[in-house]
Write a protein that binds this DNA or RNA. Structure first.
Lengths: 341, 341
DNA sequence: ATGAAAGCGCTAACAT
DNA sequence: ATGTTAGCGCTTTCAT
């Protein structure tokens, strides 16, 4: 089933069939309708590869995530999937496994197979990113590099809010539980927290880095207790939930003895125990916006400057893992050695 | 950067370059190394489209899920992603949005763009599935159709275990909370539960169908209370967690007044409140095995009969949402009209 | 408005 | 073992 079959059936040239199907306006109404009818009748489906080979456009967009295992990306993937589908694009899902090398390698591999790329949480250095963005349409999520279109979720602002929230509850010693060292968002969140603390004459403490996994919460919770803090803001909900697990295991009451605030509001944050106070991020929307911007750029690469970066707001969702600071000084560090930076 | 550039640089024919890169053993050692060196130096990346167009193989596998939003599929996607990557394949992720029409349409669209398809929870009728499987390499997950390779998670067996578990705790009135009507797994689970109940001289009751979403749990919980049952097994964890939400909202104690058992053991089932007793399914493994079987078939379509279907065992994980049946007769139905089938 | 013809980059016979 | 020659199915000049 090729355009040639349709051409034979309708008695026109293959090129006319091609036009009727790709640029209907360039063909007379009657032939167009005849061709389209034949195509429908023959149940014709264009061959993507052939089309791509001659036109250079693949109708596919790659979405790179650093870890398919992380629920945060599920939200992103939902958003991209939704928007891509609506525009008739296919989605190539790629897991870079937190490795800059792999990311760069895979990017090279898919380069010719896609029209553009959504980089959700790239681990690549700035320069590399700039170079890549110059070679192909790229949009990053939660990563701000000059000259590269991006959508970033304003978690830093949210982290500041979260910090104020804890401070207003009487907490004085608040710890930032750091995420992966290579994460751009991690640094941004830490800076925001430190800033907020400083504005209140307090000193922020940071522990970590920890991996973005629930299991990391164990070590994080132990380190956290060791600091003697009464509250913490974790890099993300996964770690926060892990901290909750460990704290329960060690018999520490949340929020009675210690308040825990997460980040992102992933699936599960509202039904864990206690339900997690967290920064609600428009994750799915970030995915959708990223794709919109990318496709917008694909359609008119001319307007280079248009919407180079959009920032999506977050808000604090207070649930039950945060509460007033304990009245009495928290007990001294319990055990183990500090992991304070 | 094409094979022609490499050919020019090394002074051989393009076809030799092609061979050196795709079937290294068919080229003399020296030329092969010379070519490979040149390819590396020029940073050559083969054009997937062109390769696909002439060879018919795309190096891509489509994974169709009925709803990217459902955490169950995250597990599947992880598994397929992992295994596909290991074999050097790319993964095209497709969401069929629970619609058989859309599924069939998208299948037609991607048909020529992929080497094979993994159908995770197909909503297509048997005949359609048979037809498609005859036309292209297909493997289904949790869907058993004669003549179609499949990997099915033995949840029915698990549901039987779960039912016995509840019976052994003294429950007599146990309800099956049904999932989507179009789900093959849903029917299989219901049959398993009914069978187990019958073996113990009890009568199973089914409510539903409900959609595979946490929000469905609200209606499900209300209908459940209305039956006066002391225990239930839900089609999946998403619904079960939704039931837990609603039960808490209505002040019903779990497992004191009613026991809730889920199915699949998705992310979150272990940290919801109370932690969910559920059937632990090897979800990720199902994805991996599906891909292995598919690729195995792609490599040697000859052995048609090899491993036509594999069944993956499940096991019951007892947590805190199930317990002894309440001593006294449960209170009479509370409100609303029954949704009993 | 339509047709003819030349490729896109690669693989796959067929020769040598 | 390597070179030659056709295409794969489509888009896209360039003619008409």
């Amino acid at each position: 089933m090729t355009i040639n079959d349709i051409a034979a059936l309708t008695g026109v040239a293959a090129s006319t069939v091609s036009r009727a199907l790709s640029r209907p306006e360039r063909v007379s109404r009657v032939t167009r309708e005849r061709i389209q009818a034949a195509a429908r009748q023959l149940n014709y489906v264009p061959n993507t590869q052939a089309r791509a080979l001659s036109s250079g456009r693949t109708g596919t967009v790659a979405v790179l995530v650093s870890d398919v295992t992380n629920p945060f990306y599920f939200g992103i993937i939902r958003g991209t999937q939704h928007q891509l589908r609506a525009a008739g694009y296919a989605q190539l899902l790629v897991d870079t496994e937190e490795s800059p090398e792999l990311e760069s390698h895979l990017l090279g591999k898919v380069r010719r197979s896609v029209d553009g790329v959504v980089l959700a949480a790239s681990r690549l250095p700035e320069e590399t990113l700039s170079v890549i963005a110059a070679e192909m349409p790229v949009i990053t999520i939660n990563r701000n590099v000059p000259g590269v279109r991006s959508v970033v979720i304003d978690s830093p602002d949210g982290v500041a809010q979260a910090t104020e929230h804890l401070i207003s509850l009487g907490h004085q010693q608040i710890v930032y539980v750091g995420g992966p060292a290579s994460s751009w968002a991690n640094e941004a969140r830490w800076r925001a927290m430190r800033g907020a603390m400083t504005r209140h004459g307090l000193t922020a403490v940071r522990i970590g880095p920890f991996g973005s996994a629930r299991a990391s919460g164990t070590a994080a919770a132990d380190a956290l207790l060791n600091t003697g803090a009464t509250g913490c803001v974790a890099f993300n909900d996964l770690i926060a939930i892990g901290i909750l697990d460990r704290l329960a295991e060690r018999g520490v009451d949340v929020p009675g003895e210690i308040s825990v605030v997460g980040c992102d509001d992933i699936f599960g944050a509202d039904f864990c125990n206690p339900p997690l106070t967290t920064l609600t991020a428009p994750i799915e929307r970030a995915g959708r916006v990223a794709v919109s911007m990318l496709l917008e750029h694909l359609d008119s690469p001319a307007r280079k400057g248009a919407r180079p970066a959009v920032i999506l707001p977050t808000h604090l969702t207070v649930r039950q893992s945060s509460g007033p600071a304990p009245q009495r000084r928290p007990p001294a560090p319990r055990s183990g050695s500090p992991v304070v930076q």
